[in-house]
Design a protein around this nucleic acid. Structure first.
Lengths: 229, 229
DNA sequence: ACAAAAGTGTTCACTGTACACCCATGT
DNA sequence: ACATGGGTGTACAGTGAACACTTTTGT
């Protein structure tokens, strides 16, 4: 263990909490778990864990996410540090909140049972422990800002998707509706989508064309930002 | 001291570092101090301090800021948590970075000497300790994003200011130039400015009118966001 | 009278938005 | 044949961007 020269300073418990968003084709959802430790055991909660002495905060978030979801390579971003003295009723714990986006089908039913996890629509969230509600509210705001300026919405969709699915996602994020002609025009003009020679026949007799991303353009727009809306 | 039920978990030193921006009428500047403790004592650094067990992280940032500047009621915002294991060469310290905006004339020369502080133009920053350079770079980005969507630029100007000063500030933030007719038109259309019956004769024979904010409109736009640029 | 900065309008291109009908297919 | 969702084009208004001359006043 590395020694420190800083004396007479307080050490504090540091946690990470992760909010995971998914999209089921209709609603935006957040993945919550039943808290496994006291206090407030059994109540709905974001998934979290403590940061270890020899572990970066980012690594702690990655660890918690992969432990709970079984997934690596998750899109993840630091959201905010919640540092009120009384935020955790059982002790002084400062929490760094991360938000993550996953394709909802990637999350296995087995893990769901194992961790007592459940997807909740954002407008039907249960009561959650501590200040987790504030964390969720902030992350929804951040998701909206982010979607305007970066094509991260795609992190939530399967590799092949229809324009209808994409539009439904944007409508769910903004909780509004868009004119489908304008939406199509706008999104295609970004040069981000590649039209495939395949149709998804799941939702209509005619079937609708599937698209995938132009990954180069995706990275480009993610780096330099875009303006949708 | 509140007891904790969390056992076998590592406690970590938590610091806050503050980056303070100011504007001298021409350049955007950051306030740096000579680090007062080992290691790296005497090197340029953001001003910082440790979070105490019974103090919220926000309160720690406020404490550091008022201690160093003598000012209360500073515009301040949490920026990011830097949590790499090796970021501080002398021990494991996780740092929460805040950025603050002050009117450069509010910062007294006396405190400047007392803390060995100095304003640096953003394009002439000295080498700073640890990962403080990353903190500064990130905060500049955040400042730019913020200025587009909120009228925070005004935090940096004196109570009465000319359109020329305001434009110079925006030009400094974006490191570009604007057409003065378009700038004036846009900024006046926001209903944010109140034209005074006073002129500032400091910079020309003709003198230019002073403005102040419409504080109600200011609060309104700060809450709901705006789009400049 | 002249130098130096302040102040002010118009035109044009583009982008966002509103709006409705035909197409393809399975039953 | 018909019902269902998929796919497409045009017209208008509002906004952003380019552009130059007149005004004021101290010296």
């Amino acid at each position: 263990m590395k020694n420190t020269v800083y004396k007479n300073t307080d050490k504090i418990l540091l946690a990470v909490d992760c909010i995971i968003f998914g999209f089921d084709g209709k609603d935006l959802k957040a993945l919550l778990v039943k808290r496994a430790i006291e206090p407030e055991i059994g109540k709905w909660s974001l998934m979290g864990g403590f940061v270890k002495e020899n572990e970066s905060v980012d690594a702690a978030a990655t660890r918690v996410l992969s432990l709970q979801t079984g997934l690596s390579e998750i899109y993840m971003e630091q959201l905010y540090c919640f540092g009120d003295v009384e935020r955790d009723t059982a002790g002084r714990v400062v929490s760094i909140v991360y938000f993550a986006l996953i394709k909802i089908d990637d999350y296995s039913k087995d893990l769901m049972k194992e961790h007592h996890a459940k997807w909740f629509s954002l407008d039907m969230l249960p009561t959650v422990v501590f200040d987790h509600r504030k964390m969720i509210d902030l992350s929804i705001l951040r998701l909206q800002e982010k979607v305007v300026s970066h094509p991260i919405g795609f992190e939530l969709l399967p590799a092949k998707f229809t324009l209808q699915q994409l539009q439904a996602l944007y409508e769910a994020v903004y909780n509004t509706t868009f004119d489908n002609r304008n939406f199509t025009k706008k999104i295609l003009s970004l040069g981000l989508l590649v039209k495939l020679n395949e149709k998804d026949k799941g939702s209509s007799k005619k079937g609708s064309f599937l698209y995938e991303f132009n990954h180069d353009q995706y990275r480009q727009l993610n780096k330099e930002g875009l303006r949708f809306l």
